[in-house]
Structures are given as structure tokens and as C-alpha cells.
């Protein structure tokens, strides 16, 4: 469990340029941020604002082109691939917009794929129970609805008891009702396990459940708002 207030991520002057075939895309330019332990943060911005890029870099999935960022005081800018892999393996859980389940594995096995390599994981059954899928353990991704698939993805992300949960548009492919179920699960994890949670969305309504909302546009931070009062996920409507 992480103590509230401790700085988890410190980001200074972070930039990222992509080579997209024949053109170059500047996804981030000079981002400065700190994220604290136990916070639920929403990254808000239109598509192409650099949200996913920032999240990927924080999660050790990608290298920045310039700038500096650290995790609990440890510099990750210059980390080797091996160090980044260990970082992901032991500290980070990911949830993607398109779930990215392994189609040839059942719900239970998809979670097991992660618990097998973690240090102090829950059992896949516990993780799936946390997201309300204890009845669907042996279903393959193709046999699950979108919302269920996303909950499997969340179970898979939290099963290792990560310090940080990074969610890229977790409700992006879901309808409003299913979406709020998924958000409620994330909220529960954040509150019960104290997991620092970063949630990307371009849906303003969702921002209401955050401790802090960080707004991005054109690869820059254009505003940070601290919520006075968090709304419960189940009360969100869009």
C-alpha cells in the first residue's frame, strides 16, 4: 500500500517525436507533471493531444525523445530495456481501449499470464471476482461482451497488485451503461487497494470522478484542476 502524498511520477520537459513513415509527428513537447501516490488522475484532451503517448512513456512502453521522468525518485529516462521490463512487470498495470486480450486464452488464463510472472499477485480468480466476473472464468475473449472483455483486461492489470494502474480510454469502445460499470471497478480498485490510477479519456463527464484532471492539447499541459469533491462512478451519465 502506498502512502498518500508520496510522489510517484515526476516529469520534467518531456517530449516525444514519432517517425510515421515519411512524416514526423510531435506528440509531446515539454510536459511537466508530478503524480502522487493513491491519486486518481484523469488525462483529458482531444485525440492527438498526446495523452496516450504520455501514458505509454509513464508505463515504460516507450522512450521519450527528450526530457526527464522518474518513478519514486528512480530515473527512468535512461533506463535500459531490461529495467523498463522489470518496472512494468512489478509496478505497472495496463488497461487498453481495445482490451488487447490474448484471443487464444480464456479469461482466467489471460489473467494467469500476468500473475505467473508477478511477485505477490492475487489469484486470477480473486482478480476476476474483483471485477465481477467470477462466473465467466473459462470463457474465451470471443465469448465475452465488450464490457466483460474490458473487465478481464482490468482484472489482468490489477492482479499483480500494481502500484500504478494506467488506463488508456478504458470506456472508449463501450456504451455508457457498461462504461460506468467499468469505471466503478477502477474506482473500487483505487480506493480499496490505494493504486495510483491514471485514466485517459476525451469524455469530460468522466473527469468528475478524478482527484485531479490534467488537460492536454497539442502535446502540452494546458491546465490542471483539483476536484473539490469526487463523484462516484455510478453517478456519472453521458
Amino acid at each position: 500500500m502506498v502512502e498518500t502524498g508520496e510522489v510517484v511520477f515526476a516529469v520534467t520537459g518531456l517530449s516525444k517525436v514519432y517517425d510515421m513513415g515519411e512524416i514526423q509527428v510531435r506528440a509531446l513537447s515539454g510536459v511537466d507533471l508530478t503524480l502522487s501516490a493513491g491519486e486518481l488522475i484523469v488525462l483529458l484532451g482531444p485525440s492527438g493531444s498526446g495523452k496516450s503517448t504520455l501514458l505509454n512513456i509513464l508505463g515504460g512502453l516507450d522512450h521519450p525523445s527528450a526530457g526527464y521522468f522518474s518513478y519514486r525518485g528512480r530515473d527512468l529516462t535512461t533506463a535500459t530495456d531490461r529495467e523498463l521490463t522489470d518496472f512494468r512487470r512489478y509496478h505497472v498495470g495496463f488497461v487498453f481501449q481495445f482490451y488487447n486480450l490474448i484471443p487464444s486464452l480464456t479469461a482466467r488464463e489471460n489473467v494467469a499470464a500476468v500473475t505467473e510472472i508477478a511477485k505477490q499477485p492475487m489469484t486470477p480468480e480473486e482478480a476476476l471476482a474483483l471485477v465481477g466476473l467470477e462466473e465467466r472464468l473459462d470463457h474465451f475473449p470471443a465469448q465475452l461482451s465488450g464490457g466483460e472483455q474490458q473487465r478481464v483486461a482490468i482484472a489482468r492489470a490489477i492482479a499483480k497488485n500494481p502500484a500504478v494502474l494506467l488506463c488508456d480510454e478504458p470506456t472508449g469502445s463501450l456504451d455508457s451503461k457498461t462504461g460506468s460499470v467499468v469505471l466503478a471497478v477502477l474506482e473500487k480498485i483505487n480506493q480499496e487497494l490505494g493504486t495510483t490510477t491514471v485514466l485517459i479519456t476525451h469524455n469530460v463527464v468522466i473527469a468528475a470522478m478524478a482527484d485531479r484532471v490534467i488537460k492536454l492539447a497539442d502535446g502540452r499541459v494546458v491546465g490542471i484542476e483539483r476536484s473539490i469533491e469526487r463523484l462516484a462512478a455510478r453517478d456519472l451519465k453521458w
Partner: peptide, 16 residues
Amino acid sequence: REQVAILKAFGYYDRA
């Protein structure tokens, strides 16, 4: 390609 990426995101080592 994509499945390799997922496994890497989970923290699987290249060797594994």
C-alpha cells in the same frame, strides 16, 4: 507483432 507487444507490456522478458 501485436501479441508480442502485449506480453512485453505485461513485463515478460524478451528471452521468455
